[in-house]
Design a protein around this nucleic acid. Structure first.
Lengths: 385, 385
DNA sequence: ACTACCAGTGAGCAATTGCTCAACGGCCGA
DNA sequence: TCGGCCGTTGAGCAATTGCTCACTGGTAGT
């Protein structure tokens, strides 16, 4: 998909001169002179339907070329391909920058713009961790003060890498818009499943995760499995643990939920020690926005996209190209034959991937908080005037 | 007017980056991905109306560029200008050829195409004289046999230049489509007004002119006033007579009705000796198609177009450019202030010029013959299987 | 501070467009 | 020559689009 309408069926060359002339004339009168189909039909002595069919043919054959004069820093074509390939609700690709750091900033900036456009009064956003996610707040500048709630969807990290912590990201975002932040007072990974159970039983923890489960939107980073990934840098997992995950086929994670390159969830012992919003709950969130920008991320992004948990992807150009290259030209067929085309016009807001279809009515931990009805008084709120 | 949608209001450069991005995105989703306005509006969190306004702005500013990939031998821009400038129903411009002869053939060819597209079973065409008109028949090749009637709208010429004679042209056209030809047995110019009256009183003559007056379409040549014009060559008028007309301000004629460069009809003694369909009757004809192609014709074409008698002009590129250059960029204002814009969308088939508005209900010599109801048995018919 | 103005907004409606479907006609094979 | 098939046609209807209008919120000028 490019920013130019393409000629799929038939080509300019396949037209006879007479047809070509007629098509061009009709198109000129309709598209350029802005007459109605009925008028041009009458003018050319055709029925309206015939004129309509000819006009359609004019577009198909390329007699009519519609070109979008997009800003040079937009990558509408890549965005379209990502959307199509992975059935995303939206994809935002930031143009390639000089280095990884600049790429991260660019992605963060675009993510901030996305949030600004899509958050409303009373929105609730579940937030994950990550360097890219952590960079968003600096660019986040909604026009008006926004009564939005940012809630941690994942435990914190023991390491000192503060700005990549969900709690910290929530606080920063809330501050920028005069909203609320609700922290999750728990580490991302605890000792064992039992501690986890106890922790989840705590009102403070359980409640926060319930609020996160009822969010309108989720903002998550896509994590990798390299030795320098966020999990390792922040001290959540050891290098060895990540290496083990890698050996099991893991390519990346969202909120600590690892998947393989095909997007299949990875059952691992770490899962039992994770304090984060479960995937099933994440899937219930209306719009899951994933950000990714580091190098060495294509496999992670590909796996996560294939898992179908993501609705909106914000990514840098390099990763976008790499992901699409790896996914191949027509991966929809390869991954899940018969999946309805993403371009399905009558489609609702679903856009869910093929794996782990959302368990209808299985869990409804928290009442779905909608715009205009802010959640009950969060335990930990900060209002920033 | 070109074959590319133009950016009138505002420009690409005047847009802020954010607006530009939004416009481009919307346009991409709407024009390229073919979503509905409602869908893109929902996708971007806008009201449908707002999306519509933005899309309109996208076209105005040139974010959306619609280009018609016209055949190289089409001059849609010139045709559009002619249509606009002179309020024509249609204009056909043939691409410039190597010489006058080739130009004439090209115009004839395009005129033939026009006739083929617009004539139907039972059509009645009033026909004038001229070299270009005479060249049409050779290219006239309707797909099916066509029960059309071609009727002379003007007397013949004494000279031997047969193929430019109305009767001859009618016969040739009728032959090509298996229709009928109705001849006018009279010279174009007679001795004096009295002879003319006697001639018109003849059933054969009066009847033919009546049929011509009831035609659906007229096919006329635009004549010049140079020493080598059709009138002179065919022997209808002497070189001196034409010189005299020229001295009176005449620039050209249609069916022997001369006009000055402003399109005003020229009262001349020759008028009293002319055996042809009167201008008032010609104006009553639904579609007056004028063909012109010789060099030295721009002034003639300009005058005739300004007279408003012509609905459709078929002309060569060189003359077209010359006429437009002479007419100036906004001649509508100069000629007749307040004349309704030709682009008036709700406009009916009128398209009449400002001079000599059609005298409603003054003359109705012959019942208006419509498609499907062929005229009564013409006196002189030739059927060609 | 008040008021007039004006650009921008969305509801509601009319016009336009796109789609489906039955009917038609031409073409090929029997 | 006949019958079936496929592509084309236009009617009718549903969806989409464009437009008008009353209203709002912000702005600039008393």
């Amino acid at each position: 998909m490019s920013n130019c309408s393409t000629a799929d069926a038939g080509s300019l060359e396949s037209l006879r001169q007479d047809d070509y002339e007629l098509l061009a004339r009709l198109a000129q009168r309709y598209y350029i002179d802005e007459q109605t189909q009925e008028q041009v039909a009458r003018e050319f002595g055709l029925s309206r339907q015939k004129a309509q069919r000819l006009l359609k043919r004019a577009r198909q054959t390329g007699v009519v070329a519609i070109h979008i004069e997009a800003p040079t820093w937009l990558r509408l074509d890549l965005e379209g391909e990502l959307r199509e390939t992975f059935g995303l609700k939206e994809a935002v690709v930031s143009v390639a920058q000089a280095g990884p750091r600049a790429d991260r900033e660019a992605v963060a900036q675009r993510a901030a713009r996305y949030l600004e456009r899509h958050l409303g009064e009373g929105s609730v956003v579940a937030v994950g961790h990550g360097r890219t996610a952590g960079a968003i707040a600096r660019f986040f500048r909604p026009v008006e003060r926004l009564g939005a709630t940012f809630v941690s969807a994942m435990g914190g990290s023991p390491g000192a890498d503060a700005p990549t912590n969900p709690n910290e990201i929530c606080r920063a975002l809330a501050q920028r818009c005069g909203g609320w932040a609700e922290s999750l007072y728990a580490p991302a990974y605890v000792e064992d499943a039992e501690v986890r159970s106890q922790l989840l039983a705590q009102t403070a923890v359980g409640r926060t995760l319930a609020v996160a489960a009822g969010a309108d939107m989720a903002l998550v980073g896509i994590g990798g499995v390299d030795d320098d990934c966020t999990m390792v840098r922040s001290g959540c997992l050891s290098r060895e643990e990540v290496a083990w995950l890698r050996s099991q086929g893991a390519v990346g994670d969202v909120l600590g939920h690892y998947v393989d390159v095909e997007g299949r969830p990875l059952a691992s012992p770490h899962q039992q020690r994770l304090v984060a919003l479960p995937v099933e709950h994440l899937r219930r969130v209306g719009t899951v926005v994933a950000v990714a920008s580091e190098p060495e991320k294509p496999a992670a992004i590909l796996g996560i996209l294939r898992s179908g948990v993501v609705d909106v992807l914000v990514v840098d150009e390099t990763n976008a190209r790499a992901v699409l290259r790896t996914a191949g030209p027509r991966p929809r067929v390869a991954i899940a034959a018969g999946r309805p085309a993403a371009a399905d016009r009558a489609q609702g807001p679903a856009h869910r991937g093929p794996y782990q279809p959302r368990p209808e009515g299985t869990v409804a931990t928290a009442p779905r908080t909608r715009r205009g009805t802010p959640p009950g008084p969060p335990q930990e709120v900060r209002t920033c005037p």
